[in-house]
């Protein structure tokens, strides 16, 4: 059996362990809620992590997938992490929680140097994905900063136009 098959076989288990680790890192209350309510609208948080987990795992395993697909699946989860309290490392560190789980469940299967090589490649893919998540995280933070500015501007949008037209003349407008 090659590594990809091990990846496939253990998918359920590893994802369960990983999401478990993510829950464990979240406040106590999140755990109960994330696990019990499966309606995506009743429990948006759990829905986001599940969506991200599946796509992330497939990409790490080396399944046929595109960066765009993985990105769109991870987007909401990363965006959620981007507005939660905590440092950026805490927000994105959750991706690295997958490594110990993989090492425990998959690495023992790697008996030949080729397997180990494949395994290391898979871990590298996780690193790349974490970088991808970092981009998304930053984009999300940018959006927030931009929203702040835009909101202040929008609040007075009409007043600014009026000031230009009636009071400031071409000086401001120019």
């Amino acid at each position: 059996m090659n590594l990809l098959e091990y990846f496939r076989n253990d998918k359920e288990d590893i994802l369960r362990l990983w999401t478990g680790a993510v829950y464990a890192a979240s406040p106590f209350e999140t755990k109960g809620l994330l696990r019990t309510v499966t309606d995506p609208f009743g429990n948006p948080g759990a829905d986001m992590i599940r969506e991200a987990a599946g796509a992330l795992y497939d990409a790490v395993a080396g399944e046929e997938t595109t960066a765009a697909d993985v990105k769109s699946a991870m987007e909401r989860f990363v965006k959620l992490r981007a507005v939660q309290q905590g440092t950026p490392s805490q927000a994105l560190g959750v991706f690295y929680l997958l490594k110990p789980v993989m090492r425990e469940r998959l690495l023992p299967h790697c008996s030949t140097p080729d397997d180990v090589n494949d395994y290391l490649t898979a871990e590298s893919r996780l690193d790349s994905l974490a970088l991808l998540a970092f981009d998304m995280y930053m984009a999300a933070r940018e959006t927030l900063a931009e929203s702040r500015v835009k909101e202040i501007r929008n609040q007075h949008a009409q007043i600014t136009r009026w000031a230009r037209a009636f009071r400031g003349g071409s000086f401001i407008a120019g």
């Binding site: 019990t36 309510v37 499966t38 309606d39 995506p40 609208f41 009743g42 829905d47 599940r50 969506e51 987990a53 599946g54 796509a55 497939d58 699946a73």
Partner: peptide, 20 residues
């Protein structure tokens, strides 16, 4: 009640979700 569970939203969210 929560309306029906829409797992179709996320393709990877397979069947077998518990209806809470």
């Amino acid at each position: 009640t929560q309306a029906d569970v829409r797992t179709s939203l996320t393709a990877n969210n397979g069947p077998g979700t518990v209806y809470y």
